[in-house]
Design a protein around this nucleic acid. Structure first.
Lengths: 354, 354
DNA sequence: CCCCCGCTCTGGATCGTTCCAATCGTAGAT
DNA sequence: ATCTACGATTGGAACGATCCAGAGCGGGGG
């Protein structure tokens, strides 16, 4: 009856069932293996009635193609590699959570999964090499691309498909796909918001000069201040990303009572400013306006609510998956990179009417 | 010269290099494929000098076995599946981040990677089925096992290897491996800490009665209070997990000035209590003692620092990987489940000497 | 009437690895 | 000298899918 050497019927008696294979389905439907394969991958090649017959058998047996076999033959693993770092300094890692979830969800819509790997923190390339050699993933998403990281150069040279979350900062000959969030724009709208609230002398609490992302955000504050005709001399400070540093810097700045606005490169710094306010019995929102960056959970729950610049991480993830598909299909990109705009979440730390 | 049909030498001229295969290595080293395979998987079968020769060729060519082929033949994908949910209510998702990173790192030590997948939030089983059928993962880690979730039953029935982070609450016939954190113990040490600080009438701010985890934590508070001989009537309240609910509940409780301690089922609730303190001009730590749960970032940065029960998530991840290896090796488990103890991180919200 | 084409469908070959049985050579026992 | 045992290595088969070339079958054009 069966022309294929299908597995014996013992299978159903065993506890740990062997899943049905393509050959099982073919036998059951009375067609060849290739026809079943086509039913899955090129349904329009089949006659409608054959297609339906095969599909009903697939349904009945609960068949899913074996991923290893598919990958071996076709070369595509349908896996997207992402190196998962421990809590990054500066950018709160709750960010990563929001991003990652949308990435997983979006990728799954097209049958892709996300594979997490780790590597020696000292070596930013560790882990990539092995996955490439063993052809374990189809593409990479690279997230930790602050200036000077070698991942993109390495992957480009190896001809591996990838997209970075983060623009190529100082690499003129980089020509890979990227997505980034316009930090300068975020700082600008935050500053403009405080200007609208009537603040004039608005301080910037940012990171060390070595942080390219920090410099970018700061430039948005500078631009907004310049546009408003306000001098910035003495208003911008550079700190490490922790609450106490910001608290003390805010105290120093508040010695000058004309300074009533604070735009910060992170929520951590913003919360530091709120602490200084509390210690000086100044009312956030009313006496002083404060805006943070990244809209972390801490910004939401802290008293009295910290306004913050929110990155469109969900959109970033969706775009990344879209671009990956384009790259994997060997289609030309419409654009090398795309910049997304963050939005401002206003809370009571910056509203006088609250 | 070459007895195997190895790929043509053109490979080196192409940009997107084809990685070397086992056959390439075998040719180069003048041995059979099987010998190379043994060099990787059963090195002690080879004569030392053969082993060394093969290894040096592997090194020189930069060979890694193709994962798809290996998986197809041996049946093991070396992937661990984890359904990655969006921000879970109640348990802050920053928790997940800490856990996940250690999981990825620990798993990678034995050549395993973590595969994230998603599923329809309405259907807790969605996603598992497909991965099982397509034999894409070796095992699952199940994290969202509050009471009544069907994952463990389903996986057990299917004979799939898995470990849950979370004990089987109301399933007497469950016999799968699990790891959990003793929430009752966490609440107990938090309560005892406040008792030591001189508080007597200590309130509990927890979740609805339907939350099994919440009930467990509450029981720790009750036990500590009973041991100290303090009546708990009227001191325990049930809330939804948000700041305002806790703030208002705290206000109501503080009408009774004998109530000076607050143990909370989450940091979010703990922060609500801190807000109430601020509004009443009560000094956290001095006038009132507050302890939260989960040691989130918010607990660390909030003013004046929220004491919190910290789960040993890194240890949980390590244990899970250990158990997975035992299960995958078909070795018997020493114990069905293991309970880990959380620790208390003391900050200024609960210290009078601070 | 025949040929050719396109639509369906088929069966063998193949991807790169590990499993399996068999082979070879050498040493120790008979 | 012959047999057995064993350590080291080998080559064919298999895992389950897709690629590829080709076969059967009608139908339209010459």
């Amino acid at each position: 009856m069966s022309q294929h050497t299908s597995r014996p019927d013992v299978q159903r008696s065993r506890h740990h069932q062997t899943p049905p294979t393509l050959a099982t389905v073919a036998d059951e439907a009375g067609v060849s293996r290739q026809t079943v394969s086509n039913a899955l991958n090129n349904p329009d090649l089949l006659r409608p009635e054959t297609l339906e017959r095969v599909q009903s058998v697939i349904e009945r047996l609960g068949y899913s193609p074996n991923r290893a076999a598919r990958q071996l033959r076709s070369g595509a693993s349908h896996l997207i590699g992402l190196r998962f770092e421990p809590a990054q300094e500066g950018t709160s890692n709750a960010l990563m959570d929001r991003f990652l979830h949308t990435l997983v969800e979006t990728a799954s819509r097209t049958g892709h999964h996300v594979l997490l790997f780790s590597g020696n923190p000292q070596d930013p390339l560790d882990g990539y090499e092995d996955l490439l050699r063993s052809t374990a993933v189809d593409a990479f998403v690279v997230t930790d691309t602050y200036a000077g990281t070698p991942q993109s150069g390495f992957l480009q040279e190896r001809g591996a498909p990838f997209v970075t979350f983060g623009r190529p900062w100082d690499e003129p000959d980089a020509d890979h796909a990227w997505i980034d969030v316009d930090g300068a724009h975020g700082a600008r709208i935050a500053t403009e918001h405080l200007l609208e609230q009537g603040h004039r002398r608005i301080a910037w609490l940012g990171w060390e000069k070595t942080s390219r992302i920090g410099q970018d955000r700061r430039s948005g504050w500078e631009a907004a201040m310049r546009a408003a005709g306000v001098e910035t001399a003495g208003l911008g400070v550079r700190l490490t990303d922790n609450v106490d540093a910001a608290r003390m810097a805010a105290h120093a700045l508040m010695e000058d009572p004309s300074i009533t606005g604070f735009v910060c490169a992170s929520d951590t710094l913003g919360i530091g400013v709120l602490h200084a306010c509390a210690e000086r019995r100044l009312r956030p929102g009313v006496d002083v306006g404060v805006v943070g960056f990244d809209d972390s959970l801490a910004a939401q729950v802290t008293w009295p609510g910290l306004s913050s610049v929110r990155q469109p991480l969900e959109q970033v993830a969706v775009e990344i998956v879209r671009i990956l598909h384009t790259v994997l299909a060997h289609q030309p990109l419409e654009e090398r990179g795309r910049m997304l705009r963050p939005t401002l979440v206003v809370r009571r730390s910056s509203t006088r009417t609250g």
